[in-house]
């Protein structure tokens, strides 16, 4: 789909050029949008591609963020190594969760990860000596100076790298196997696919990327709080991915940027924005299960071809 590559290239150029003409406020908004785009696209890989509908994705972001910050804070580990450690920890936790949920599907998996995420949040609140609880953990920034531009470009490059990594993974047979598992796990096993291995693998990869998002978010915002893990945050990530297209990783990333950007543009409407978000989530799922971009391209391509190509990412 070269046309979609062209669109992606244009979007990337626009993102690179934005700080040149937009004010510092929008640079700040953009830098936060990259955090959500990382989460939404990696969640789309986990839930849309592999069919593992997890509510714990933002908990992995918090795990990565808190772990790297605490390691620097308590053991004086340099931030770079702290980040790597945070990501590795998120991957290990992802492997563990992936292994635990092997037998759970659909709503059972959703409930399990929801409960797990809630336990993790309550631990962050309760273990005040370590995490400073609801007051939040101060995280020193990476880049000096007042400007958010370094974060903007750093976050953007993380996002692009993550999208390329995931696209590369999906182009191998792993992508094929993940979709086979999503469509019918038992049939995938009967076809010789080691479903255990690939289900754990997708949890490891996506948890690592969520952890990466968290390690980026902390130093940029300057504070980590347990509210990163509240259900509405996860709801926001789900809504972003569903609206952008749960089976298209760039679609989910763009969905995240659009949803976050729109919510900033319409700040004066306060809580009404989230009413609309809930409504949009239901309507998109009801009428456009592959996201709004699939609807936009539908008239241009024959429907079966769209589906086949979309599936391949």
């Amino acid at each position: 789909m070269t046309r979609s590559h062209a669109v992606q290239a244009v979007l990337l150029i626009a993102a690179l050029a934005l700080p040149a003409w937009a004010g510092p406020y929008w640079v700040h908004v953009g830098a936060i949008a990259w955090y959500y785009a990382l989460l939404a696209s990696s969640w789309a890989l986990l839930a849309g591609y592999a069919g593992q509908f997890s509510f714990a994705h933002v908990a992995f972001a918090a795990l990565g963020g808190y772990a790297s910050a605490l390691l620097s804070l308590h053991f004086g580990i340099p931030p770079g190594i702290g980040v790597v450690a945070g990501i590795v920890l998120a991957m290990v936790a992802g492997a563990l969760i992936g292994w635990l949920v092997l037998r759970l599907t659909g709503p059972y998996l959703a409930l399990f990860t929801l409960a797990l995420s809630e336990i993790f949040r309550l631990m962050l609140v309760a273990e005040q000596q370590l995490t400073r609880g609801s007051l939040g953990l101060q995280v020193p920034g990476w880049f000096g100076g007042e400007s958010d531009r370094p974060y903007y470009y750093f976050g953007l490059s993380l996002l692009v790298a993550a999208l390329l990594l995931m696209a590369g993974l999906l182009r191998t047979r792993v992508g094929l196997f993940l979709r086979a598992i999503r469509d019918d796990e038992g049939a995938a096993r009967a076809a010789g696919v080691n479903t255990t291995l690939y289900k754990i693998l997708v949890f490891v990869v996506t948890s690592g990327l969520a952890g990466l998002a968290g390690t980026y978010y902390g130093p940029f915002v300057g504070i980590l709080t347990p509210s990163m893990v509240i259900l509405p945050e996860m709801g926001l990530v789900i809504a972003m991915a569903v609206i952008g297209g749960i089976e298209s990783l760039p679609g989910a990333a763009v969905g995240a940027v659009i949803v976050y950007g729109l919510s900033e543009l319409t700040r004066e409407y306060g809580q009404w924005r989230f009413v609309l978000l809930g409504l949009a989530l239901i309507l998109v799922q009801r009428f456009a299960q592959n996201g709004i971009f699939a609807v936009l391209e539908r008239p241009l391509l024959r429907p079966p071809a769209v589906e086949a190509e979309r599936g391949r990412g």
């Binding site: 839930a47 069919g51 509908f53 599907t105 659909g106 709503p107 959703a110 999503r182 509405p232 709801g235 789900i238 809504a239 569903v242 749960i246 306060g270 809580q271 009404w272 989230f274 009413v275 978000l277 809930g278 409504l279 989530l281 239901i282 799922q285 009801r286 299960q289």
Partner: peptide, 24 residues
């Protein structure tokens, strides 16, 4: 096609919608 996911998303979307509508 993805019935489980569909049901989770729309009922969860209902929560987002109604909770915030309640606040407003």
């Amino acid at each position: 096609e993805r019935k489980d996911e569909y049901a989770i998303i729309v009922t969860f979307g209902l929560t987002v919608l109604l909770l915030n509508l309640g606040i407003v």
